[in-house]
């Protein structure tokens, strides 16, 4: 059947339906294992609230991890790269055109020399 065929890359293949079948089997197994767990969880009770050493839960705005807090280490490590890259993105349309002219000149040169 047509829909049962695989996507070939020449050196390998990808069969999404097989992958999905395997995925569903793993999910079903996970659900079965989970069903052996203790059934003490009660929705909307004290159980579901975070325990903060007895302190009240803070304002949601204070505890939410913002985008600016994520990947700090990554950005700090690549600080030099980002300083250079961000400084190249000036927002000035004249610079945008300069890049166009530069690439045009370079590719013309490459084309003529090739």
């Amino acid at each position: 059947m047509e829909y049962m065929t695989t996507l070939s890359s020449g050196s390998g293949f990808w069969h999404p339906l097989l992958w999905l079948t395997a995925f569903v089997v793993v999910v079903v197994l996970a659900v079965i294992i989970r069903s052996f767990g203790a059934r003490k969880y009660k929705m909307d009770t004290e159980q579901t609230k975070p325990f903060l050493s007895g302190n009240d839960e803070s304002d949601p705005n204070e505890i939410h991890v913002r985008a600016g807090n994520l990947y700090w280490g990554y950005l700090e490590t690549l600080k030099g790269y980002y300083e250079k890259m961000i400084s190249l993105h000036t927002g000035n349309p004249a610079d945008y055109l300069l890049w166009l002219f530069g690439v045009l000149a370079l590719v013309v040169l490459i084309g003529l020399l090739a």
């Binding site: 304002d59 949601p60 705005n61 505890i63 939410h64 985008a67 994520l70 990947y71």
Partner: peptide, 14 residues
């Protein structure tokens, strides 16, 4: 990062 920033976390009062 986008997913966490937009959709995750506690429900914000605003």
């Amino acid at each position: 990062k986008v997913f966490h920033s937009m959709f995750m976390g506690p429900k914000l009062p605003q």
